[in-house]
Nucleic acid binder design. Structure first.
Length: 1131
RNA sequence: GCGGAUGUGGCGAAAUUGGCAGACGCACCAGACUUAGGAUCUGGCGCCGUGAGGCGUGUAGGUUCGACCCCUAUCAUCCGCACCA
């Protein structure tokens, strides 16, 4: 009877399915254990051998815990919303829902083959309305909550509103700041829009107008962690900064708690470190420096080193800093403007690529050192970021390398405050130096001086302690289709949440996936869905355009003329400037009835930046395009024509747009027939006064990929609940995820977001724990091991006759020996060619070794690893794969074609992926599972190598033969086990249990092999030994274990068997083979009774002839005896 | 530059508290069985050396009776962050 893994595995997989063996109950007398895998994004490429590594590890652990008597929750699902499906839809026209469904089916069948113990009745899909109903609901919880700075936790926004309405928001001391502080009466007098504007500053999910990472190619904004080196993480498209209205999660409010929580979870140091770096907490001080000359306000800087204040030689502020214009002196104005132009011209990517370049410009202004009155020049420079701290720094060149470089570059004198610690060659950021040249801080050690300096600054009222974070609030909206729609309706410029009973807000079906107008997502194209039907619909474009219908050169002109005009105008459209974008952002969302702004809409061949046809109002933003005389004449002609035809024009400068948007909106509003401003601050509107003028509109962006994954571990607990996202009693039972397994790539994205959501839910009392994952295990990446063939190219190829142009591939060894040669003649290669073509050899022999560069080159071509056995190429398979090489000739070494190799990321495009299905078909799931574990420690990255899988397969067959012989059939028996056999068993129990518990699955597999080898040697086929061994094996190789368990006539499933209990008595030995070292070097071993005492052992050791030989008749200097370990004789 | 991790045979790796370095497996070599072998079994397998023996865990030191393991310095590779004041 042979080990027929195909039949066995199929049989048991079906059996487990039919019997719902892996179904888990939410109530049990057993202790609970929650093992979770990071759920996959179902990509079209399917699984490769790298994906299941973590799943196998967690599956083993889940099964192990089950055998050890736990009620184990081990679910699986799909993170099925996301960009790739949508990109694919754009390319192929297939609906994301369709491709996602298909991909999930592929994943599922691949997963099923490996024999995982998931409870599939709990499957979740983030793109399922039944699931995202609760994602939307949770978003509303975030929207309806704020972070209370006193209690350091989330609370309902209603509490805050109540406080504002009854007590207002007044400062504890000092004068109230307009815009920040208000009384209850003032609050109650505010319009909804005004109140909302204030509340948006506190909500945990809020919308704001700010700088975002805009990716033109993807047509969406991205979160900071989705941007890598200035390009998008997915696809590698350029990313630029853009001002847009976006939704955000206030994750910064949780910065400290996210840091603190790391102390209470079992994550790797690397993982914790990554999160800490991302949060980037730093402690320091904000210091106000007066500007020399008086009028200007103070310059606020942030520093972590207030102790170095006497070493400040200059100030640097960000080019975007609001004070730049104000403090720049007349004589420096030109220089500064030149520099600002330069800065603006540089893309994010250029800045990143040229970090080392030192640039900057002096403003002409001086700040004053508050302690010694020293005049400090104020510079602007790119290296100071507007978004961090106060956007201004005090530069201490003797202590900071960047400041040092800057000072050197611009020849700014450097003050030394740290004596000999500063060598004049480079900065020294020490905190240990004793301060000099530092006024009242002289003689103090720097780290002690920090506190003293801050105290003094606080006392003087010009500084205070301040903690800063590098982390920003997380962008939460995407201009995409395939994501959760926001349960939000915009009305009168105010975001209104949907009622809970209206959830889920389902994603409407679309047929095209192109972006909506002007940076909006595809949803904006579905007007039926976007504009709410029970309210006045927006006029159609035709109606809106009616006002312009009678214009000469417009729609009433004859068709051909109109078309030509339009074509000409369209051809001259320009890429909008940053300012125009900002303007557009400001007007486009104002769905003002009978007043819609169009952008670069042609009118009689002119292209105004913006036009409202209904009101015949043109808005021009000065982009600086009209510089030539010709253009100016054109402008004049245009204005004349427009004026004659009843158009009015209003112009804004770029500076107005960027710096004074409220004023712009005010002016714009006045220019419209309403005669009022469009709003007060930014784009917040006087909603109530405008009531009826605005069309309610759904939010058209969708939530990002991490929305659904931030809470999925909770839904698994209670997946079918239609009343709530997860019943509190259920989440109290399952509580935290005990073991979370996944890759490191989610270190700062998903893991931070889900930790934050968990904390919010905890604060709101919806769950009972505030860290989602108790222990995190990161599986290593399985890299691909790519294979190459070497194609020989003769530069004189065209001179060769056709039949001599056959492609020639040379084996790796030949390549290595010849790759550095330029000329074939005289090389080993030359001689080898004789073997495959005497004609070619003769031809080459006629070539001189002069007259042309390089008579040959060698191309490396990737070859599919599946055609390579180790390093040896399967020539026939290769020829079939690349038909253009069907006639190719091969130069062998030792009769084989050996490929070159390189370790790199596993990916389809590199032809180095290995599909688990192939291996499962060939060796079976059990072999595959054990081999993946046997490769090495799970958390380590390693290249995949299929070769070794044979060894594991042989092991399973050898195990099988302990039960059944190919010829004799059944060989297992009911005989009584011997001590030696019991010793093997219990040694194995101990090892397997310990290794499994500590995730050392690779050594556990070794232990199984040793055990089977030993039992084979002992000719042990006894059920007494084999039965417990099968239980040990179940987590690793569940199919064969179940089959043999049943073959042994055991009752029930091995999955429900009791885990064997280790008994140390079987391992007790009377004698031990002691290693005997001479001077620490092992020379021999001696069998000595384990209970022998030191004196006795010493006697035995000294009597040993090997020891005698090494002693050469001398007495030993010393004898070290460690009981049950070793003996060391020092000579 | 900062932070984290890893360096051990031809290869993947093991060594649980400082105590026999290389378990287990791959590859390879020799042999047995066989019509055959990409099946199975037996033996060998760190390097140098015929041998005794010497050397050996990235490199250089140190602590120790004894170091892959602890300490110091240094090099290399991988991962993460990167003008964060």
């Amino acid at each position: 009877m042979e080990y027929n893994f195909r039949t066995i595995e199929q049989k048991w997989q079906q059996h487990w399915k039919d019997n719902e063996t892996y179904k888990v109950s939410n109530s049990s007398s057993k202790p609970k254990y929650y093992v979770l895998d990071m759920f996959p994004y179902p990509s079209g490429a399917g699984l490769h051998v790298g994906h299941p590594l973590g799943y196998i590890a967690s599956d083993i652990y889940a099964r192990f815990k089950r055998l050890k008597g736990f009620n184990v929750l081990h679910p699986m699902g799909y993170d099925s919303f996301g960009l790739p499906a949508e990109q694919y839809a754009i390319e192929t026209g297939q609906h994301p829902a369709t491709t996602t469904e298909k991909n999930i089916a592929t994943f599922r069948s691949q997963l099923d083959k490996i024999g995982f113990c998931y409870d599939w009745s709990r499957e979740v899909r983030t793109s399922d309305p039944k699931y995202y109903k609760w994602t939307q609901w949770l978003f509303l919880q975030l929207y309806n909550s704020y972070f209370c700075n006193t209690q350091k936790k989330a609370r309902p926004i209603a509490d805050l509103i109540h406080k504002y309405a009854t007590k207002g928001a007044m400062p504890k001391s000092g004068a109230p700041i307009p815009g920040t502080h208000f009384t209850a009466d003032e609050w109650n007098g505010y319009s909804t829009a005004q109140q909302e504007e204030i509340l948006a500053k506190r909500r945990l999910a809020f919308s704001a107008y700010g700088e975002v990472n805009w990716c033109e190619a993807l047509g969406t904004v991205l979160a900071n962690d989705e941007v890598v080196n200035g390009v998008s993480e997915r696809g590698g498209h350029p990313v630029e900064k853009k001002k847009m209205r976006q939704w955000y999660l206030r994750i910064t409010a949780y910065a400290d708690r996210l840091l603190e929580g790391l102390d209470r979870v079992d994550f790797s140091d690397a993982m914790k470190e990554m999160q800490k770096n991302w949060i980037g907490r730093s402690e320091g001080a904000e210091i106000d420096f007066a500007i020399d000359g008086g009028e200007a306000p103070t310059l606020k800087v942030y520093t972590t080193r207030p102790d170095t204040i006497f070493g400040v030689d200059f100030m640097v502020i960000a080019p975007e800093h609001e004070l730049v214009a104000q403090i720049t002196t007349a004589e420096q104005k030109e220089e500064i403007e030149k520099y600002l132009t330069y800065v603006k011209s540089r893309s994010e990517r250029e800045r990143m690529a040229e970090v080392k370049q030192i640039t900057g410009c002096f403003t002409g202004a001086y700040a004053l050192n508050p302690f010694d009155g020293r005049k400090i020049p104020v510079w602007i420079a790119e290296y100071v970021l507007a978004g961090y701290g106060t956007g201004a720094i005090m530069a201490v060149p003797c202590g900071d390398q960047r400041d040092f470089g800057f000072a050197q570059h611009f020849h700014i004198p450097i003050t030394n405050i740290i004596g000999e610690h500063y060598n004049g060659q480079e900065a020294n950021p020490t905190k240990e130096a004793i301060l000099e040249n530092s006024g009242f801080l002289n003689g103090m050690v720097m780290k002690d001086a920090m506190g003293v300096a801050i105290d003094k600054l606080e006392e003087m009222g010009i500084g205070k302690r301040k903690v800063n974070y590098r982390m920003r609030d997380a962008g939460f909206s995407r201009q995409r289709y395939w994501g959760e729609p926001f349960p939000i309706v915009w009305k009168d410029g105010v975001a209104y949440p949907l009622d809970e009973k209206d959830l889920p807000l389902e994603l409407p079906h679309v047929d095209t996936y192109g972006p909506g107008p002007e940076g909006e997502g595809p949803l904006a194209n579905i007007t039926d869905w976007v504009n709410l039907s029970d309210l006045t619909p927006n006029p159609s474009p035709k109606e809106r355009g009616a006002a312009a219908q009678t214009l000469p050169g417009y729609m009433n002109s004859n068709t051909d003329e109109w078309r030509a005009t339009i074509a000409n105008a369209k051809a001259h459209r320009h890429k909008p400037t940053k300012e125009e974008d900002a303007m557009w952002q400001a007007v486009r969302n104002r769905q003002i009835k009978n007043c819609k702004f169009r952008r670069q809409h042609p009118i009689a061949g002119f292209i105004p930046d913006f036009v409202c046809l209904e009101q015949k109002l043109i808005v021009e933003v000065d982009g600086g395009y009209h510089t030539t005389e010709e253009q100016q004449q054109f402008d004049e002609a245009r204005e004349k024509w427009l004026a004659e035809n009843g158009f009015r024009m209003i112009r804004f400068t770029n500076d107005e747009i960027l710096g004074q948007m409220p004023i712009v909106l005010q002016k714009l509003g006045e220019a419209l027939s309403f005669g009022e401003g469009l709003g007060e601050v930014n784009e917040t509107l006087k909603g109530e006064e405008r009531q009826g003028e605005w069309v309610p509109r759904r939010e058209t962006s969708t939530m990002p990929g991490y929305a659904g994954s931030s809470w999925y571990f909770l839904r698994y607990m209670d997946p079918q609940n239609e009343q709530t996202f997860c019943d509190r009693t259920v989440s109290d039972y399952w509580s935290q995820v005990d073991l979370y397994v996944g890759g490191t790539e989610h270190a700062v994205g998903h893991l931070l977001y889900s930790r934050m959501w968990t904390k919010v839910l905890y604060d709101l009392g919806l769950i009972g724990f505030d860290e989602p994952f108790k222990k995190l295990m990161n599986q290593g990446m399985i890299q691909g091991s790519s294979r190459y063939v070497y194609l020989l190219n003769f530069n004189k190829n065209e001179d060769l006759s056709k039949e001599l142009q056959t492609p020639i591939f040379i084996s790796e060894g030949i390549y290595e020996k010849n790759k550095n040669h330029k000329y074939v003649k005289g090389t080993e290669l030359h001689d080898l060619i004789k073997e495959i073509s005497i004609e070619l050899y003769d031809e080459i022999s006629t070539w001189g070794d002069y007259g042309f560069e390089n008579s040959f080159t060698i191309n490396r071509i990737r070859v599919d690893v599946n055609f390579v056995d180790g390093f040896e190429l399967d020539i026939e398979a290769f020829k079939k794969w690349r038909v253009e090489y069907a006639d190719a000739k091969f130069l062998f070494e030792d009769g084989k074609y050996i490929c070159g190799s390189e370790v790199e990321k596993m990916s389809k495009s590199k032809y180095n992926t290995v599909n688990p299905d192939v291996l499962v078909d060939k060796y079976g799931a059990d072999t595959f599972r054990m081999y993946e574990m046997f490769l090495g420690p799970v958390e380590m990255s390693k290249p995949w190598d299929t070769k070794g899988i044979e060894g594991v397969h042989r092991f399973l067959r050898k195990l099988w033969r302990l039960f059944f012989d190919d010829i004799k059939g059944k060989v297992w028996n009911d005989e009584k086990a011997t001590d030696a056999e019991l010793k093997v068993l219990h040694r194995t129990i101990k090892k397997i249990e310990g290794d499994t518990e500590s995730f050392a699955f690779n050594t556990a597999v070794s232990a199984f092999m040793m055990c089977v080898n030993d039992l084979t040697d002992l000719k042990c086929n006894k059920k007494e030994i084999l039965s417990p061994l099968l239980v040990l094996l179940t987590p690793y190789a569940p199919h064969i274990a179940e089959e043999l368990w049943n073959a042994l006539e055991n009752s029930g499933s091995v999955l429900n068997a009791a885990y064997p209990v280790f008994d140390g008595k079987y391992l007790v030995e009377a004698e031990k083979e002691y290693p005997i070292s001479i001077n620490g070097k092992m020379r021999t071993t001696i069998n000595i009774a384990t209970d022998a005492e030191e004196t006795e052992v010493k006697e035995i050791v000294l009597a040993n002839e090997v020891v005698q030989k090494w002693l050469e008749g001398n007495a030993p200097k010393k004898i070290i005896f460690v009981k049950n370990k070793m003996v060391n004789v020092v000579v």
